[in-house]
Design a binder for these strands. Structure first.
Lengths: 234, 234
DNA sequence: TAGAATTGTCTCAAATTGAAACAATAGAAT
DNA sequence: ATTCTATTGTTTCAATTTGAGACAATTCTA
């Protein structure tokens, strides 16, 4: 695998994505682990010269998750000089066995446009890229140390997600098509980091008139079976 | 005035600023008019190679308004290919009497990080830049046609400002240090584009415990004089 | 001194939310 | 079959917030 040259990509510009998933009651994000370094980073990439910014992000997410239709939101662009750490990037590239040319473009200062994505944890097929030997889910409150300012990016993503949760009613993007009210509440609680009142939550969600009610879900548990819901098509 | 060369600036990366002001009951923004073209654009600029992104924006705003302390918020980065219109940029540069070199960097595709600013209309000293023969205030609902996607940038700025208005209590940044409740309400109404209920607005603002009440303002009008308020130091 | 305009506060109803109670139901235990 | 436990969907009542208007106070004019 040859190093990509600069002619294909916009120099100095990258994107990073904070991909949220939900499983076993926990909010999680995707992280890559780079070969032979033990370093973790957000899935990111570069923008081709003839490509829309958002298409570049979708392309990267598709390559790593196999998903084409993804809830995606740009939330901030990071451009502090303190992001510029060419030694870190050099180590990552060299750990992949590359000889790095003088003034190689990937060692330059980069501005990163950050997006967060919400996906159904079950629908994903994870595929590492060339520089990584793994891509995997990590609980949001048990993240390993991340390179560059990626921890700051994650925190800002989470903050923005919380602020947008009610306004945009996006919680359902983390669940399968059909879900119980309890599951939806668990998603809200995981994102907000606090317990919600069951009856108030149910009343609120139903009053918003955004859910369709379907058949009951019989789990075999010895109690009343909950209804399944889906989000109404807008 | 020589053309700037690329060695000083990050290529492909620009910023644009939507500078909001408020006067005579109207919400306004700053626009530049380019020499000899009749074209209008947002005040923007480029980022120096050794400069933080946000510092570049502050530098540009200081040069044009004389203000150092400005409420500034990044809200979106625009990166569609449709922004790429080298002919427009070429015309602007040529209208300033420049001979444009082959492959001149300012004619490349640009990604623009957009910020909005809230300033006290009265504190500003407007100064055009080299390419412009004017910088002036324009009512938000009577804007001239703008180049590139700048109209889209303005709309997105306004939308974000509306969403952040209550959460961040930023309306006061458009007013002098001391203002009447009526003036504050007028700012909110101009931003939201709707009339608010006087009594409810007053009750709400007072209950938030963010205002200090000062002396009355006697305007000579034949009615009860309103109190002056200021925002509490946080 | 009366009048017009505007401000600050209060009142009462309507709507929303907090907190808990209650009835319904699915399966397990007896 | 009956009882029991856990959980769900709904209802109830109080507390809080908001909508809409009334009302008294104040400032200057006529």
């Amino acid at each position: 695998m040859a190093l990509p040259d600069t002619s294909q990509y916009i120099p100095h510009l990258a994107y990073d994505s904070v991909v949220f998933g939900f499983s076993k009651g926990k909010l999680k994000i995707l992280l890559m682990e780079y070969h032979a370094t033990g370093w973790y980073a957000l899935p990111g990439g570069f923008v081709r010269k003839a490509e829309n910014l958002e298409d570049a992000v979708k392309r990267g997410l598709f390559e790593r998750t196999g998903l084409k239709e993804i809830y995606l939101k740009q939330f901030h662009t990071f451009g502090d000089r303190s992001r510029y750490q060419p030694k870190v990037m050099k180590t990552i590239l060299e750990a992949n066995g590359h000889a790095i040319p003088e003034n190689y473009w990937m060692l330059d200062r980069f501005f990163s446009v950050a997006y967060y994505a919400l996906i159904d944890h079950e629908k994903v097929t994870l595929t590492p890229d060339n520089l990584s030997d793994s891509i995997a889910w990590y609980e949001i409150d048990r993240l390993p140390k991340l390179i560059f300012d990626h921890d700051k990016i994650v925190q800002k993503a989470l903050q923005t997600l919380r602020e947008n949760l009610d306004r945009n009613l996006i919680g359902g993007n983390l669940l399968p098509d059909r879900f119980t009210m309890n599951e939806l509440q668990a998603v809200y609680e995981a994102i907000l980091g606090e317990k919600l009142r069951r009856t108030s939550f149910q009343r609120k969600m139903l009053s918003l008139d955004i859910l369709d009610r379907h058949e009951k879900l019989y789990t075999g548990k010895s109690h009343k079976a909950p209804f399944l819901y889906s989000f109404k098509l807008t």
